[in-house]
């Protein structure tokens, strides 16, 4: 992969040490396609309805190394109908996968918070699955000033 390393070297020189994102060198659309593939795998090809899922993220993340993220699904958590899984993807990272949360009825609420890494300005996509096999989705754009993929 001679071309890639040359590109990485160029990016390093231009960005000056640690600031540049010297990653896989893949175009963003490849990650977006992979994200779409992962969603299709998660839903088994079913279309996810937009809504019910809320994503909390800062509008502008100054440091992509640690960005607070909260995902909440506005759905009942009863024994026979609850939110079982939430898939979270970042479509501009070298690998789109962020995390998959699994819930049970005794979770009480389909809500989780964590801190994530973001390489660049991109969309965060969350897809929720209920025990009845329904899917809900939402996405949010987050602007990243300094990417969090090393360099």
């Amino acid at each position: 992969m001679r071309q890639l390393s040359r590109r990485a070297a160029l990016a390093l020189g231009a960005a000056g040490a640690a600031l540049g994102f010297v990653g896989s060198g893949r175009p963003a659309s490849a990650a977006a396609k992979e994200a779409a593939d992962q969603i299709a795998q998660f839903t088994g090809g079913k279309a996810a309805e937009k809504g019910k899922v809320s994503i909390e993220l800062p509008e502008i993340a100054e440091n992509g190394n640690t960005v607070p993220l909260s995902v909440t699904v506005d759905a009942p958590m009863d024994n026979d109908n609850y939110v079982s899984d939430i898939l979270v993807l970042a479509d501009g990272n070298p690998n789109p996968g962020v995390a998959t949360f699994h819930f049970s009825p005794i979770s009480g609420k389909a809500a989780a918070s964590t801190r994530i890494r973001l390489a660049a300005t991109q969309n965060i996509i969350a897809v929720a699955k209920t025990s009845k096999g329904e899917f809900f989705t939402n996405q949010k754009l987050v602007k990243v000033t300094i990417g969090g993929c090393g360099g």
């Binding site: 690998n95 009825p105 979770s107 009480g108 918070s113 964590t114 801190r115």
Partner: peptide, 21 residues
């Protein structure tokens, strides 16, 4: 109650917040 599969996009020193009834 709750479990997570983590990918490399989770920040260092992972912080996890969840709920339980």
């Amino acid at each position: 109650v709750f479990s997570v599969n983590l990918d490399p996009a989770i920040a260092a020193n992972p912080y996890m917040q969840s709920t339980q009834r």
